[in-house]
Design a protein around this nucleic acid. Structure first.
Lengths: 191, 191
DNA sequence: ATTTTAAAAAAACACATGTTATATAATATA
DNA sequence: TATATTATATAACATGTGTTTTTTTAAAAT
């Protein structure tokens, strides 16, 4: 055996995450990570074949954090929880969130397609949403996902009115959900 | 005088725009522009002090194109036109649109703050929106701007259901506008 | 026709970055 | 204790980029 391991794979990913959070994913370099850890680049190349592998691991880490936020949010109303979790992630990790949406559309797309049926199923259990067809539920969900992405990006990019705080954001998200559901109910009445 | 000018400022910006449209703004380099024009980098440095100046000029070009799209869209319903124009830009120039939102939040912020009062004023003339207070109109506008950003980014990032076409996007944008306005009217009834 | 001038090309410089090759040193094992 | 192993450090290499310097060249002025 050689000397004790001083820099682990986890530590490297953590450090990359910290840099990404402040400067953006593109600003990560091998030397920056090394400097921040107080090492040379050697430990990085022991743990990762190259920069692409490191990036892949970082993306996985980010996804896992966002998923954890979703777990924490749990009012029993799944599609509202999802919106709030996304918003929280966008606020707490704004730089990374923007990078992720921009760069990683493909990953998100796959993730989304898997979540869709699950969410529809959950929505069917929701008393507030009783009596809607699956198609109507799909439309409601899509509208809310669109709105949720919009407000998340606005929050992450400081595009909302200055005085807007987190609570205001959650309120307008919730209020728009009400709008969409209410209008769907009215339309249902016309069927 | 020296030889005839072979590479104009406009041509350089056009070429940068083409690269940005395909590979993203960050992928623009002096040498790439030169190669695409069939020149050396010299003409670029005659027309621009450095890469920052070139980027500034490119952003101006992008803004001007997006403004032109807004001019073309003109159904007389200003805040719906704005949504459609943004959506069209996002679809036609998807790579640039994403870069712009992400990178250039600050510019958009300023642009927005200037547009807000104008739009509110236009909304007050809209018969569909008669009888709302300024605050109510502001909320409606904000909700629609959020939704519009969300769908534009989804369109630009291919995050919408595969079968969704441009018309579907415009329809759901319009339908959500209806939802928001309708719900606001119901709330107004409760005042 | 010659000279001047400015546009463009070619080459060079400085620097950042990914990656690899080599050197160093700490630890387990014989 | 001596040796082998291997984590880490150091240094070097290749490449891409912005920028500057030098050279070439074509049009205009003389």
């Amino acid at each position: 055996m050689g000397p004790k391991v001083k820099f682990t794979r986890e530590q490297i990913i953590d450090t990359a995450f910290e840099i990404a959070q402040i400067e953006g994913i593109d600003s990560i370099t091998m030397r920056k990570i090394a400097e921040k850890m107080g090492s040379s680049v050697a430990p990085i190349y022991v743990n990762f074949k190259n920069v692409d592998e490191l990036n892949k691991a970082l993306i996985e880490r980010i996804i896992s954090i966002s998923r954890q936020l979703l777990m924490e949010e749990n009012t029993g109303n799944p599609f509202r929880d999802m919106g709030n979790a996304s918003l929280r992630f966008a606020i707490e990790y704004s730089v990374i969130f923007r990078d992720l949406v921009i760069k990683n559309g493909k990953y998100m797309q796959g993730y989304d397609e898997k979540m869709m049926p699950v969410l529809i199923e959950e929505m069917q259990k929701d008393p507030e949403l009783k009596g809607f067809t699956t198609d109507e539920l799909k439309t409601i969900l899509l509208k809310m996902k669109i709105f949720q992405l919009g407000i998340s990006i606005m929050a992450a990019s400081s595009l909302l009115p200055k005085e807007y705080n987190k609570q205001d954001m959650m309120d307008i998200l919730s209020s728009t959900a009400d709008d969409v559901i209410m209008s769907a109910k009215l339309r249902r009445g016309l069927r």
